[in-house]
Write a protein that binds this DNA or RNA. Structure first.
Lengths: 106, 106
DNA sequence: AATATATGCAACTATTTGGTTTCATAAAAT
DNA sequence: ATTTTATGAAACCAAATAGTTGCATATATT
């Protein structure tokens, strides 16, 4: 099964978990309290996030605190960057495009 | 079934299709020639991309030219933006964090 | 008119996914 | 020592996914 950051962020619940633990490390139980789903389903999402290298764990007694490895999201940023360049250049050149269109049509 | 831009970009083949048609509009057949998969599977991916509002179609005779609606990718950019701010501020404040840590530990 | 080409759609299949239920283990509280 | 709490793992299930195969339709080409 594929395990990359794009697959990780595809699920809305996982994006919500990411948002939660970006602020502060949390235990699976604490995370589950923020959703109406079982603790086990959160654990499975955390396992997927962990396999995608998006979270780190810190054991404290019987609790495990999960937090976001925010650097990993830079992979998404790097991917979107190429397209950002396209839409930014399109915006810059909008006037040119419009005047060229006028010429072509005429 | 969920149809949003995050689900659309989760599949590596769809990301490859996006990269292709970002440059220029292409027909399903022309796209399929770039992969070792059937024309029909490309059509299914294009359907998903279309349902996610990531592509636009232009019919020319019996050909249909698909091209990227790049604005839609700005939704991904907006999502990643909040985390970019976090890692950028972390970078900016790295010295502060380190000196604070020293104080806390001591 | 007959044939070839470009495409979408529907049915079918194997695999993956997200979830629940149940169990095992280890640490804390009593 | 016994019970409670926090967690992961395994078995199972329904739904979704990616792909294939076979068709239907419409536009070119001959």
């Amino acid at each position: 099964m594929r395990r990359d950051v794009f697959q990780a962020i595809a699920d809305p619940k996982r994006r919500a978990i990411i948002a939660l633990i970006a602020v502060q490390a949390m235990t699976p139980n604490a995370i589950a309290e923020n959703f109406n789903t079982s603790r086990q389903s959160i654990s499975k999402h955390l396992k997927i996030l962990s396999e995608c290298d998006l979270v780190k764990q810190e054991q404290q007694g019987r609790e495990i605190h999960y937090s976001l490895k925010i650097e990993k999201l830079q992979e998404v940023d790097a991917w979107i960057e190429q397209y950002r360049q396209i839409w930014e250049s399109r915006f810059d050149q909008l006037d040119n495009v419009l005047s060229n269109l006028k010429k072509d049509k005429k």
